[in-house]
């Protein structure tokens, strides 16, 4: 769907490049996570991909055609979901949605979406009367109201309660199920774990690592099993290598003779990988 080759960008007043040769591809029907701490270039990458910034070097192909060759028609095919509120606050939710809908050839059933997201009953209210969570949900409706082929989502569940976050995540998965492609940017690693088929970690204007969440966890995790067991009045821990576990007599002996309290594989989390790859801990 997208092929990004050696993307470089420098803001007019910056002495150095913000993007320093970013390359990746996004396949059709994929949810692709673009992750990294603030200031590493992921917003710049997204802004270039939604044609807000045009003076870039390198190439971006969308459906095998260079992005520079697309005019405003490109926006008929994409949907952009912002983290910040983006609606006319003195208009009602319905008026906002209707205004934007008219700009597109393809139009989604927004009433049904609003019902699903629990804001249909409030559609006649002005947006400035909406809570933060309601505005986030309305942002999502705005992003998909043209039935886009590609969705660019920036923190789509931030500020939502778990139930509404679940609905949005389900809708994103359904979007993928019907062939939609998503570029997701978020700091919520649980969302990344649940949604993304592949993720790219950015650091210092470059792609530091790109793979599936599962492969990243295997690569960066320790292949160990930590066992917590009772011995008399105290609890003790033992660590076993996962690869030789099936032949490890000590492990079987422990399981047979001791009361096991807990047993955990030492698979790493995406949070740990984020910190390790991006070096955010060092700087933070």
């Amino acid at each position: 769907m997208f092929q990004v080759n050696n993307l470089t960008y420098r803001y007019p007043r910056n002495p150095e490049n913000t993007l320093k040769g970013v390359s990746f591809d996004i396949k059709q029907g994929e949810i692709f996570g673009l992750l990294g701490p603030s200031g590493v270039g992921k917003s710049t990458t997204q802004k270039i991909m939604v044609k807000l910034l045009t003076a870039y070097q390198g190439e971006i192909y969308y459906r095998n055609k260079e992005l520079r060759e697309f005019d405003r028609e490109y926006y008929q095919e994409i949907g952009v979901g912002f983290e910040v509120p983006v609606h006319f606050s003195k208009l009602t939710a319905e008026e906002n949605i209707n205004f934007f809908k008219k700009l597109y050839r393809n139009q989604a059933h927004t009433d049904a979406m609003m019902q699903r997201l629990g804001i249909y009953e409030d559609r006649k209210k002005k947006v400035d009367e909406f809570s933060k969570g309601m505005k986030v949900r309305l942002n999502f409706v705005r992003a998909v109201l043209n039935r886009p082929a590609v969705l660019f989502l920036d923190e789509p569940t931030i500020g939502l309660d778990p139930a509404n976050a679940r609905i949005i995540k389900t809708m994103i998965k359904e979007f993928r199920k019907y062939g939609g492609t998503v570029l997701l940017s978020t700091h919520l690693m649980n969302d990344v774990d649940e949604l993304c088929d592949r993720v790219a970690f950015m650091a210092d204007g470059q792609i530091a690592e790109i793979d599936t969440p599962k492969n990243l966890k295997i690569k960066h995790g320790e292949k160990k099993l930590e066992v917590e067991y009772a011995e008399g009045e105290t609890t003790k821990n033992a660590s076993f290598d996962l690869e030789t576990l099936s032949r490890n007599e000590n492990f079987f002996n422990l399981v047979r003779t001791r009361q096991v309290i807990s047993m955990h594989s030492q698979e790493t989390t995406l949070d740990d990988i984020f910190i390790k790859i991006t070096g955010v801990e060092k700087h933070g």
Binding site: R72, Q76, V84, F100
Partner: peptide, 17 residues
């Protein structure tokens, strides 16, 4: 107004010329 309430952001990514 558009700038303050963020609606300008979303206007910029529509088919509006």
């Amino acid at each position: 107004y558009e700038k303050q309430e963020g609606s300008l952001h979303t206007m910029l990514v529509t088919p509006i010329s």
